[in-house]
Amino acid sequence: MNRTGTGRRAALGIGLAALAGALSGCSDGPAPGPPLRLATGPEGGPYNAFGKALARAVTASGRGVRLEPVTTAASVDNLRLLREGSVELALAMADVAEDAALGREPFTAPLTTLTALARVYVNYTHLLVPADGPVHDVGALAGRPVAAGAAGSGVQVVAGRILRDPGRAGGAEAPRERALGLAESVTALREGSVDALFWAGGVPTPALAALARERPLRFLSLDDRVGPLRERHGPVYSAVTLPAGVYGLTEPVGTVGVGNYLLARRDVPDGAVGELLRVVFDRWRELMGEVTAGARLEPRFAISTGRVPLHPGAVAHYRSVYD
């Protein structure tokens, strides 16, 4: 399904009320209600894959919720759709979700209806250039064209914060950011119309693994950017490592990690949230396999959603299962 228009928004209250009634009125388990719309990301991207896998898992579970994945531009777009009421659920990177919760740019006011269900996995920021090119660090990107993530994506947010570092040498020309999605970015780097490519996602990301098999690449270290990002934007950023062996790397490369949140409007019924989280934790191996290798989903990790409050239904779920 693609983005819905204002006509879908008008039905939001009716749909949620019907879902709440279905969930509360059945002693043997909730009856199927109207689908909860989940804002994911572009076709072929990890959010889209995760959303579709989650929808399949929910359907197979036989629980009283249904999901309808919605194709979007990803994080920033997803939060805007959540604010409008065009969707009830969304996936978003942690930094963008906190910006929305606090009303920071690119959002103009706090999104007071925003809650989190779980921190589901960590994105690894990838910054890669041709191995035979002159760029060996972020500073060498001054004045050069850089594929910096699709418009409305979380990749664009973290790439912009790294490229616009206030510590950049005085008078240095800023990199020329181009708003390109992953597939477009790979094509642009291959053809030489950009000198570097930013991506934030799981490891390995198949499109980048394929590119690395096709031509030698250099993955730039972002170790020195983690501290400044945390100072300016908080602990949503962490130090992580691209391991040796992935993408043909001969040694580890330090980079910036950003969590991914499964989010909901506060008016989604508590019962629906509980049923959804049961599916997420029952099927986490399958779901994580869609986005990143070797990831685990544990309660102590899942509840770490920073400045985005947990949905009351999520709080009740974690207390009932893990106390």
Rank of each mutant, 00 (worst) to 15 (best):
N2I: 08
G5Y: 03
T6L: 12
R8A: 13
A11I: 08
G15K: 07
A18I: 10
G21C: 13
L23T: 10
L23K: 05
S27T: 14
D28K: 02
P32C: 10
G33S: 14
A39C: 12
P42R: 02
Y47W: 03
A49T: 04
A49S: 10
G51K: 00
A55G: 12
R56P: 13
A57V: 01
V58K: 03
A60T: 02
R63F: 08
R63K: 10
L67G: 12
V70R: 03
V70P: 14
T72I: 06
V76Q: 11
D77S: 12
D77Y: 05
R80E: 09
L81S: 08
E84Y: 12
G85V: 09
G85D: 05
S86K: 05
V87Q: 06
V87T: 09
L89D: 12
L89H: 10
M93Q: 14
A97K: 08
E98L: 14
E98G: 15
D99F: 15
A101F: 11
A101I: 13
L102W: 10
L102N: 13
R104L: 15
E105L: 13
F107Y: 15
P110K: 07
A118N: 06
Y121Q: 11
T125S: 10
L128D: 02
V129S: 04
A131T: 00
A131Y: 02
D132K: 00
D132W: 00
G133P: 11
P134G: 08
P134V: 04
V138L: 02
A140P: 09
L141N: 00
G143L: 01
G149V: 11
A150N: 12
A151W: 14
G154H: 06
Q156C: 06
G160V: 11
G160M: 08
R161N: 12
R161M: 15
R164D: 15
D165V: 08
R168G: 07
A169C: 07
E173Q: 10
P175G: 01
P175N: 01
R176E: 08
R176M: 07
A183I: 04
T187S: 09
A188R: 01
L189T: 04
E191L: 10
W199D: 04
A200N: 09
V203G: 07
V203C: 07
T205N: 10
T205E: 14
A209K: 01
A209P: 06
A210L: 15
L211E: 01
L211R: 00
R213T: 15
P216K: 00
L217P: 08
F219E: 02
S221Q: 01
L222H: 13
D224R: 04
G227Q: 07
H233C: 06
V236K: 00
Y237P: 12
A239M: 03
T241W: 14
V246M: 06
Y247N: 06
P252R: 04
V256G: 07
V258P: 15
Y261S: 11
L262R: 02
A264T: 04
A264N: 03
R265V: 05
V273T: 04
R278E: 15
V279M: 05
D282M: 01
R283H: 09
W284C: 14
R285K: 04
L287Q: 08
E290Y: 00
E290Q: 10
A295K: 00
A295L: 01
L297N: 09
L297T: 08
E298D: 13
A302I: 02
A302R: 00
A302P: 13
S304G: 03
S304V: 02
G306H: 04
P309I: 05
L310N: 03
G313Q: 05
A314I: 02
H317F: 15
H317P: 10
H317R: 03
Y318L: 02
D323Y: 03
